[in-house]
């Protein structure tokens, strides 16, 4: 059986060759993942395993660095570096702070994804 990331050979439409510059947050996410990796807390195999474990829904709905971020969160909990409660509390705190400073600008569908 194919797992969600195993798409080699499946029918798909034309390749869109346009370039896409990374956003600042995507660069941050890449740098954070690299720094955690350099500490020996997330190898490329662990990253791959964590991304694959996010399931088909995540493969379809999330963008590339959203998957990386979800995988990093999962890996930090599984490694015992962070707890899910700590992450949830910090997410709520960051969200409030960004809302207070006017930096948060979410669509309703994004806001629904908040825990």
């Amino acid at each position: 059986m194919r797992t969600p990331q195993d798409i080699g050979g499946l029918p798909e439409g034309p390749v869109d060759p346009s370039e896409h510059m990374l956003n600042f947050w995507e660069k941050q996410a890449d740098g954070l993942r690299a720094a955690v990796g350099a500490k020996g807390l997330m190898s490329s195999h662990e990253s791959r395993r964590a991304i694959e474990s996010l399931g088909e829904d995540a493969m379809e709905r999330l963008t590339y660095y959203e998957r990386w971020t979800a995988a990093l969160s999962l890996q930090m909990v599984e490694r015992g570096v962070l707890t899910q409660d700590e992450i949830d509390a910090k997410v709520a705190q960051v969200r409030q702070r960004l809302a207070d400073t006017g930096e948060l600008e979410m669509t309703p569908s994004e806001a629904e994804k908040l825990p």
Binding site: A70, M76, I87, Q93, L104, L114
Partner: peptide
């Protein structure tokens, strides 16, 4: 900040 995962990334 537009998405939940951006917030999660900052939080992490």
């Amino acid at each position: 900040v537009h998405s939940y995962y951006q917030i999660l990334s900052i939080a992490l």
